[in-house]
Amino acid sequence: MAKRILTVDDSKTMRDMVSYTLRKAGFEVNEAEDGKKALAVLAGGRFDLVITDLNMPVMDGITLIRNVRAGSQHRGVPILILTTEADGVKKAEGKAAGATGWLVKPFSPDKLVDVVQRVCP
């Protein structure tokens, strides 16, 4: 059974690129355009991994992570942040919120798949 991944990004182009890369590698992918919509998608099923952008309208990635970690259904699901931000302070904030890992855009498709396979075996 394919692993289910939720990718969250306000950029449709970025969601399309991430989804295409992961589907090509055999993953089942759902998408959301902000943290609030991501929470609604998560409420509808089981996921093995969440990949989220940091800077989004309505609800940002850090707030999304805090909400996921505070819930019960997906509390232990790995969460990767995929963002243009490389600032150490932001990384520390993401880690404190409960992020599993951090990837910087633009991403290499091979590296993305490699990281996903490591955190979601």
Rank of each mutant, 00 (worst) to 15 (best):
M59K: 11
R46E: 02
S19K: 12
D48P: 00
L49I: 00
N30V: 14
T63D: 13
D48W: 00
V41C: 04
E28A: 14
V58P: 02
M14R: 08
N30Q: 12
M56E: 08
M59A: 10
L49V: 03
E31A: 11
N30M: 11
K24N: 13
P57S: 15
A25I: 09
D34C: 10
I62A: 15
D34M: 06
K36Y: 11
L42T: 03
G45D: 04
G35K: 03
A32T: 02
N55R: 08
E33W: 07
I51T: 03
G61C: 10
E31K: 11
M14P: 06
A43D: 02
R15M: 07
V29G: 13
P57F: 10
A25T: 07
G61W: 05
A40S: 03
T13L: 09
I62P: 13
M14Q: 13
A32S: 05
G44T: 07
F27D: 08
M14T: 12
L39G: 01
V58G: 04
G35F: 07
L22Y: 05
L39Y: 03
K37V: 13
D53H: 08
P57Y: 14
D48A: 02
M17A: 14
D10T: 13
I51M: 00
F47C: 01
N55P: 08
S19Y: 08
D34P: 05
G35L: 07
F27L: 09
G61R: 06
G35A: 11
D60V: 09
D48K: 01
M17E: 11
L54H: 05
G26T: 14
K12D: 09
I51F: 01
F27G: 06
G44I: 04
R23E: 14
V29D: 14
G35P: 01
Y20Q: 15
D34V: 10
N55Q: 06
L49K: 00
E31L: 06
K36L: 11
A40I: 05
E31R: 12
E28Q: 12
A32W: 02
L22M: 07
D10R: 06
Y20M: 15
L39D: 01
G26Q: 14
G45H: 02
Y20D: 15
V41S: 08
E28L: 15
G45W: 02
K37A: 13
K12S: 03
D34L: 06
T13M: 10
R15N: 12
F27W: 08
D48Q: 01
D48H: 01
T13G: 10
I62H: 14
F47M: 01
T63F: 09
V41D: 04
I51C: 03
A25C: 10
G35D: 11
K36P: 06
T21E: 09
T21I: 12
A38F: 04
I51H: 02
E33H: 11
V29N: 15
M14Y: 09
E31G: 14
T52S: 04
T52P: 00
R15D: 08
D53T: 12
T21K: 12
R15V: 12
M17F: 07
V18Y: 00
Y20V: 15
L42A: 04
Y20F: 14
A40Q: 02
D60F: 10
E33C: 12
G45M: 12
R46M: 06
G44N: 04
G35W: 07
R46S: 05
M56G: 07
A43Y: 02
E31M: 14
